[in-house]
Amino acid sequence: MAPYIELTNWQVALAALLIVINGVVSVVLRLRLEKTLAIASVRTVVQLALVGAVLSWVFRVDRWYVVIAIAAVMTLVAGLSAADRSKRKFPGIRLIAITSVWACAWMLTGYVLLFVFRDLPKWYEPQYAIPLLGMVLGNTLNGISVGLSTLTETLVRSRGQVETLIALGATRWEAAGEPIREAVRTGMIPIVNSMMVVGVVSLPGMMTGQVISGMDPVQAVRYQIVIMFLIAGATALGTVSVVLLSVRRLFDANHRFKFEIIRNADAK
């Protein structure tokens, strides 16, 4: 396998020219997206450059506490954005999202680092730990925010049914049973769908990267399989966790549905 070609800034600039296509489309069709496009392009460059700088620094310093600190910041941001994507909010939603992301991503990434990649020279090996956690966070974030939105949406929409069951003596878990199942199912569908078509319709980004950097495709595929199952497990765990914690928050000890604490973020 040939090692990869080093890219210079000039070569990247040539690729960046492609954004002109978006600009032309926007101008011709009067989409008025020029400003947004410009901001998005600049953000792409700046954010990735920052990540590159931070990662090089972390790899150079190579200390466990630095890796943990970076991982904590990444997890926190993922949890917050999962909560903020939900249209309906309630007090405590951020804490619940952060807790769920944190627990599922760290437990399962830890499992893969310690047991699957067991020959790593150091348990916190940043070259593995950070990209792995990043991929898990990016994907579970989706499941968690979809699960959260579906739960609140379904609960609000079926308030009559939920209350009828409560009035007949149901516990909160019985009354919210259907919304819970709906939320977990919807949260898990995207990852199951991508497992169905991976390699056929799409080549995963990580695998592509490894092949370009010279890895044997057989090895790259093995890495990708590990990642897919890691993401699937973390998504399932994170979605279940966020949904159950939210139900605990949205019903009181008397099994009453606290409808009044759910706020619609769009209705101001």
Binding site: S158, G160, Q161, E163, T164, I166, A167, G169, A170, T171
Partner: peptide
């Protein structure tokens, strides 16, 4: 709190409009 569901099974509230 631990008697709430038992209480509601004895004291049943019927809504003005039945939920579908």
């Amino acid at each position: 709190s631990d008697q709430a569901t038992g209480y509601r099974s004895q004291v049943v509230y019927v809504h003005q409009r039945a939920a579908g």
